[in-house]
Computed example of a mutant assay.
Amino acid sequence: MASNGSPSSEYVTLVSSDGFEFVVLREATMISSVIKGMLDPNSKFAEERTGRCVFEEINGMVLEKVVEFFHYWYKNREKEDVPDMEIPVELCLELLMAADFLGLDKAT
């Protein structure tokens, strides 16, 4: 099994602007067109080689909720009638900005 961070690893590390690190199932992050592009084996991005994506634009509280969404989406991606995910009102604006930045509003 490949170690975390290698291109063939099934996990990637997402790092927030304030240094929080989240180890996430690689396949769950593929809903983000931005992360998908960063981790593309044909890309020349360092993230593809290291399996580590640093987001200077997203703080730890927001990235934690984004990671929660990645897992929620992955777990429920083939289900119907999925309940809404809980979103704290105080994070709504920042989450919308993060979702836009990460390309989560695009059809996959």
Rank of each mutant, 00 (worst) to 15 (best):
V82N: 07
E48Y: 14
P83H: 06
L14N: 07
C53W: 04
G5M: 10
V24I: 14
E94V: 03
G37V: 13
L63N: 00
G60P: 01
Y11S: 08
F22L: 12
M30Q: 15
S33R: 07
M97F: 09
L93K: 04
D40P: 00
G37I: 04
W73N: 11
M30W: 06
I87S: 12
N42R: 10
P41C: 08
M1D: 13
Y74Q: 04
C92N: 06
A2F: 10
V54P: 05
E10D: 15
F70K: 01
F69Q: 03
S32L: 03
D81M: 13
V66M: 11
A99K: 01
M61R: 14
F45D: 15
F69N: 06
S43L: 06
E27W: 03
D105R: 08
S32D: 09
A98R: 11
R49Y: 08
A99N: 04
V82G: 08
R77C: 13
T29I: 02
K36M: 09
L91N: 12
S9R: 04
G60W: 02
G5S: 02
L63H: 02
A107Y: 11
P7G: 01
K36A: 15
M38Y: 00
D40N: 03
V23Q: 07
A98H: 13
F22W: 14
L95F: 05
Y72R: 02
C92F: 06
V62N: 01
M61H: 12
S33E: 15
I31V: 10
N42M: 12
F22M: 07
V23T: 14
A99D: 10
V82Y: 00
H71F: 09
F70E: 01
I87N: 11
G103H: 01
K79Y: 05
V23E: 02
L14I: 15
Y11W: 11
M1Y: 11
L39Y: 03
S16E: 13
E86W: 02
D18Q: 11
H71I: 09
M97L: 14
L93M: 12
A107D: 12
S43I: 03
E86V: 13
S16N: 08
E68H: 03
K79S: 11
I31K: 03
T29D: 04
N4L: 10
S43K: 01
E80I: 09
V24N: 06
P7Q: 03
E90A: 05
R49T: 14
V67C: 00
F101R: 10
E64H: 09
K36P: 07
L39T: 10
E86I: 10
C92V: 10
T29M: 02
M85P: 11
P83V: 09
M1C: 12
F69K: 01
D81Q: 15
D84V: 07
F20N: 13
M61V: 06
S16R: 09
R26T: 02
L91Q: 15
W73S: 07
L102I: 01
T50V: 00
E86A: 11
S17Y: 10
R49Q: 15
S16M: 11
V89Q: 12
E68A: 09
S17H: 07
A2I: 05
A99W: 00
V66K: 01
P83C: 10
E78T: 14
V34Y: 07
N76D: 14
